[in-house]
Simulated assay, not measured.
Amino acid sequence: MREIHPLTNQGRYVFSGRNSVQRPLSENTVDTALRRMGFESDQMTGHGFRATARTILDEVLGFRPDIIEHQLAHAVRDPNARAYNRTTHLAERVRMMQEWADYLDRLRSPVGVT
């Protein structure tokens, strides 16, 4: 992340919006890029990457669903839990994202994922 920071206009987001560095890249922009790469909307969407990550983080890498949901910035459904839960689980989320990056690197290797 530190290596890419100079490429992101020193902004808050790694992938900032097309029109403003104060906003994240929109899902429509990601979907448009996928269409330009030849993916049809029934093959892959920007949100589909999130769903794929959610599934692999749980079923393959064995992370707790609540940690995954927290990382994906999904709201807690229970209003009482939402009102009182101030946890961030930052250390576990950092570990999870490193394992996710390592998993993706293994996918690129000739040997693949074991």
Rank of each mutant, 00 (worst) to 15 (best):
E59K: 11
S109H: 11
F49R: 04
T32L: 13
H89P: 00
D78C: 03
P110C: 03
S41A: 15
T32N: 12
Q22P: 00
V21E: 10
E40C: 10
T29W: 06
D66H: 09
L61T: 06
L7S: 11
P110Y: 06
T87A: 15
Y84T: 10
E3W: 12
M1H: 13
S109N: 12
G17A: 06
G46T: 08
G46D: 03
R54V: 03
E69V: 04
A73W: 09
D31N: 15
Y13A: 09
F39S: 02
Y84D: 04
E99H: 12
N19L: 13
H89D: 00
E92F: 01
G46L: 07
R35T: 08
S41D: 15
F63Q: 00
I4H: 10
T52S: 11
H74C: 08
A51Y: 06
T114V: 14
S16F: 10
R50I: 07
V60L: 05
A73S: 13
D66W: 00
L72Y: 07
T88I: 08
A51F: 02
E92C: 03
Y13I: 04
L57N: 00
A101M: 09
R2S: 14
D58Y: 05
M37T: 06
F15N: 06
N9W: 12
R93L: 05
T55E: 04
E99A: 14
G38M: 10
R108H: 15
F15Q: 07
R108E: 15
T45Y: 10
A33E: 09
G62R: 08
H47Q: 12
G112D: 12
T114R: 14
F49K: 04
M96S: 04
H5F: 14
A81P: 01
Q10L: 14
A73F: 07
D78L: 03
S26Y: 07
D31K: 01
E92G: 00
Q22G: 11
M97N: 05
Y13R: 04
L107G: 12
H89E: 02
G46Y: 05
V94W: 05
R36V: 09
R36S: 11
E99W: 05
R93Q: 07
A91E: 14
P6Q: 02
E59A: 11
T32E: 13
L72S: 05
A51W: 06
P65V: 09
L34E: 07
A81H: 11
V21T: 13
T87W: 01
V21G: 06
S16H: 15
R23N: 11
T52E: 09
A75P: 02
T8V: 13
P24T: 02
R86V: 03
T88Q: 14
